[in-house]
C-alpha cells in the first residue's frame, strides 16, 4: 500500500503528460515543458510550507490570505525600500504564521478554525497595507529588484531556480534534520512524541511559521510575475495548494509526505488544468472538477486506522 502511494502520483503525472501530448503534439517540447514548470512554481512554493503542516496532521487555511498580504507589502514598499521590501514581505508571512501557530497551539484551537480566523486578520492587514486597492509595480522597479524572480539564468526561468532552491532546502530540512523527524513523528503519533520529552509545541509553531513564510515567498513571486499586488491576489490558490499536497500523496491524517511529492502534485494540477483548457473546459468548470479531485484525493490517501470518529 505504501509503495502504491509513493509510485501512484508520478505515474499519474506521466499519464497526464502523455494524454495532453496526444491531444496537442506541440505540448512535447522542451520550451513548453519549461513554461509549464515555470507556471507551476508559485503554486508549488505555496504548497511546500502547507505540506509540513499537513504532515503534522494539521491544516493551514490562511496561505492564500498570507500570499496576498505579502504581494501588497511588496508592491507598496518596493518604491521606498527597494530590495528590503522583499524580506519585509516574507517577514510579514512569518509573523502571520506565528499568529496562526500561537492561536492553534497556545489557545489549543483546532488548526482549521485557528487558521481560518487568522486568515481573516491577515486579509484585513492586506487591505490596510494596500489601502484597499490593487497596487501596480512599476516596470523599472521589476527590472531592478525582481529580476531574480522573472528573469532567466543559464537559459532557464529564474522562478524554476527559486523553486529548485526551496525544494532542496525544505527537502533537506524535512528529510535530514531532527526538526523534519519531529514533524513526521508528530503526524504519525503525537502522544508518543510528547512522551519522549520533545517540545512538541515549539515544533508545531515553527511549522506554522514556515508555512506562513513560504506562502509569503509565493505571494512575492506572484506579485513579481503579475506586476502588481492586491489583497485578493491569491484567493483562488487555496484549493489548488491543498490539492497539490494531497494529490502528491501526503495524507491529510499526517505522518507521511514529502516536498518532492508536493512538487509532483503541483505539476499534476497544472498539467490537468492545461489539458482541460486544451479540451475546451472552461475555467469555471475546472474549479468544479478540482473541488471533487480534492475530495477524492483526500479519501484515497487518508489513513482511517488513525481516526475512529470522522467529524
Amino acid at each position: 500500500m505504501e509503495h502504491i502511494r509513493t509510485m501512484l502520483p508520478p505515474a499519474v503525472l506521466v499519464a497526464m503528460v502523455l494524454i495532453v501530448g496526444l491531444y496537442d503534439t506541440t505540448f512535447f517540447s522542451l520550451s513548453n515543458f519549461e513554461t509549464v514548470i515555470s507556471d507551476t512554481m508559485s503554486l508549488f512554493l505555496m504548497a511546500t510550507g502547507l505540506t509540513l503542516v499537513i504532515m503534522m496532521g494539521g491544516i493551514d487555511l490562511s496561505v492564500q490570505a498570507v500570499a496576498s498580504m505579502a504581494s501588497c507589502i511588496l508592491a507598496v514598499y518596493l518604491p521606498e525600500l527597494g530590495f528590503l521590501a522583499i524580506p519585509l514581505a516574507v517577514l510579514g508571512g512569518t509573523i502571520a504564521g506565528l499568529l496562526s501557530g500561537f492561536v492553534s497551539i497556545a489557545l489549543r484551537i483546532p488548526s482549521f478554525i485557528a487558521t481560518l480566523a487568522a486568515g481573516g486578520l491577515v486579509t484585513s492587514a492586506a487591505y490596510w497595507f494596500s489601502d484597499t486597492r490593487s497596487v501596480d509595480i512599476a516596470e523599472d522597479l521589476t527590472g531592478r529588484y525582481l529580476n531574480w524572480a522573472v528573469g532567466t539564468t543559464l537559459g532557464i526561468s529564474n522562478d524554476i531556480w527559486v523553486g529548485a532552491i526551496f525544494l532542496i532546502i525544505l527537502g533537506v530540512l524535512l528529510g535530514a534534520t531532527p526538526f523534519g523527524r519531529y514533524v513526521r513523528a508528530i503526524g504519525a503519533q503525537e502522544r508518543a512524541v510528547i512522551a519522549s520529552g520533545i517540545n512538541v509545541n515549539r515544533v508545531k509553531i515553527a511549522t506554522f511559521m514556515l508555512s506562513g513564510t513560504m506562502a509569503a515567498v509565493a505571494g512575492v513571486m506572484m506579485a513579481a510575475r503579475l506586476g502588481s499586488g492586491s489583497p485578493t491576489l491569491a484567493n483562488e490558490f487555496l484549493l489548488p495548494a491543498i490539492a497539490a499536497v494531497i494529490v502528491g500523496g501526503t495524507a491529510i491524517t499526517g505522518g507521511v509526505g514529502s516536498i518532492w511529492r508536493t512538487l509532483v502534485g503541483a505539476l499534476i494540477i497544472q498539467v490537468v488544468r492545461i489539458g482541460m483548457t486544451f479540451m475546451g473546459v472552461s475555467v469555471f468548470t475546472q474549479q468544479i472538477i478540482f473541488g471533487f479531485i480534492l475530495v477524492a484525493a483526500v479519501a484515497v490517501t487518508m489513513d482511517r486506522k488513525k481516526i475512529l470518529v470522522i467529524k
Binding site: I59, L61, F112, L239, I242, I252, S282, F284, T285, Q286, Q287, I288, I289, F290, G291, F292, L294, V295, A296, V298, A299, M302, R304, I307, I310, K311
Partner: peptide
Amino acid sequence: LHVRLKTPSFMTTLGVGFAGVGIATAMLGG
C-alpha cells in the same frame, strides 16, 4: 461524500464549496 468516503467534513465541504462557486460562475459564464 463526507459519510460514504469517510473524509473529514472540513475537507469535503471545502471541496464542494469551491465546486459550488465554480458551478455558479459557469452557469452565468462569468
